[in-house]
Amino acid sequence: MKFTENKRFDFLLVFSVIFLMIFGLLNLYSVLRPTNNLALFYKQVLWDIFGVFVIFLVYFIKESFIKKIILPLYLISIILLVGVLVFGTRVGGSIRWYRFAGVSFQPSELSKLSLIMILAYILTHKSLKNFLISIVLLVIPVMLILKEPDLGVSVLHVFIWSIMLLFSGVSFKIIATVFGSMIGAVPILYFFFLEDYQKSRILSFLNPEKYFQSASYNVIMAKNTVGSGGIFGRGYLVSPSVNGAFVPKFETDFIFSAIAEQFGFIGSLIVLVGFGVIIFKVLKDIKDYKNSFWKLVSIGIISTFMFHVFENIGMNIGIMPVTGIPLPFLSYGGTSTFIFCFMIGLLLKAHALGTKTRKVI
């Protein structure tokens, strides 16, 4: 068998993304309308249009160019992470964004993309040396992101590295040792590296009623909003919690609660199906991808999507602590939309490059 770049296009993958974008815009409009802040809605429309352009741009870029930019992209992301600690804008006690001319950019979003690409390249070549290099490549951005601080994105980086390591073919003994060490490091991380507000989020997750007036207020309101939607929802643009803007950060962290209230269990299930199509379509086709590099890139991207979906929906229904992780294509956010669309472009590229064709005899 041989591999050919036959330009086969995965229409189902793109259709799922566009569907989620449209559904996200409908919900974003509904939660911003009562606040008279529709400027964010129009910004997101532009980001989504630009994101679709990025998907096709990445799809048509040559494979050789993509591999050439891996190291520069990683180095740029590290420089930006260092720079944001000095030049970034402080919001709510954290310094995570560059802001200029009314546009915000979050370098940690770029960092997760660059980490996936450079780990795919490093872990393709199996050796103890490359395994140790992968740890260094992980630790540098994680330590910088913890300084912002942003625990959720730091954990995401570790999750990406862990899943890619599992699928890289590294020795089981090494993997067992690493994961054992990570579990042992949890108490050290909690007592010596987490900020007080991050500890309070974890404690409020374990005992939400005790922290109702503070750290767990958002979660309890979101849970009540989700539960009020029932099977079919309370109606688009007429749902009381959405119209009353009862849940803080409705447009970002808690957009799923707006979906659940307005469209109920059925609407929530439709959203999950949209993400499920993206995830399972890639997992189904990945065995036919061109080489280990593209397989690992796809694994890293899919693990990112799974983490975002599980964590965001989990914190909306109270089974996960609040970390500020957005819901892809549904939460407001320009940087995250751009990065997720870039990732979709890479998945399309992997699909096009990885079609197996039989030799003609």
Rank of each mutant, 00 (worst) to 15 (best):
L32R: 03
I78Q: 07
P248N: 08
N312D: 07
F263Y: 09
A176I: 13
L194W: 04
F307S: 08
Y197S: 09
M117F: 12
S114R: 04
R8I: 13
S154C: 10
F65M: 12
E311A: 12
G333C: 05
Y98D: 04
S154I: 05
V170N: 08
K359W: 13
L165A: 05
S94A: 15
S108R: 03
P107Y: 05
F100P: 06
I118T: 04
I78D: 04
P72G: 11
I302D: 01
Y197M: 10
F191L: 11
Y190T: 11
S200W: 09
L353M: 12
L189A: 10
R8E: 14
V14S: 05
K249Y: 12
I61K: 10
M320Q: 07
G180D: 09
Y190N: 13
A352L: 10
L144G: 04
N27L: 14
F159H: 11
P240F: 09
L75Q: 11
G235K: 00
G152M: 04
A120Q: 03
D48I: 05
S16H: 05
G227P: 04
Y190V: 14
E261M: 03
S94N: 14
Y211M: 10
R33S: 14
L38V: 13
G92R: 14
V54D: 01
N6T: 13
L81K: 02
G227M: 10
I18D: 08
K199V: 11
S204W: 02
P328F: 01
L237A: 05
L330Y: 00
M306Q: 09
V242Y: 00
I174Y: 15
G354R: 03
E109H: 05
L165P: 02
F53W: 12
L138V: 11
R8M: 12
N36E: 15
F60W: 12
I79L: 15
V142W: 02
V360W: 15
L115P: 00
F65R: 12
W294T: 03
Y121P: 04
F167I: 07
G184T: 08
V273A: 07
L206C: 10
V297K: 01
V103M: 14
I118V: 15
N312R: 01
L81C: 04
V242G: 00
G235A: 06
Q44R: 02
F159Q: 07
Y217D: 08
E209N: 13
N243H: 09
L123K: 02
K67A: 06
S77C: 08
V31A: 02
G169I: 06
G51E: 03
H308L: 09
F87N: 12
L119H: 06
S171W: 12
S214P: 05
F179A: 06
F254H: 01
V158I: 15
L348H: 03
F65E: 09
F172M: 12
K295Y: 11
E63H: 07
P208E: 10
V297D: 01
F254A: 01
F15S: 14
I55K: 02
H351E: 11
S108V: 04
N27F: 02
S162Y: 13
L237K: 01
K356L: 15
I344L: 10
L12M: 13
L128T: 14
G230P: 06
V86A: 14
L237Y: 00
I339N: 00
L113D: 00
F205C: 05
A352Q: 10
F307W: 11
I49D: 08
F19A: 07
I69H: 09
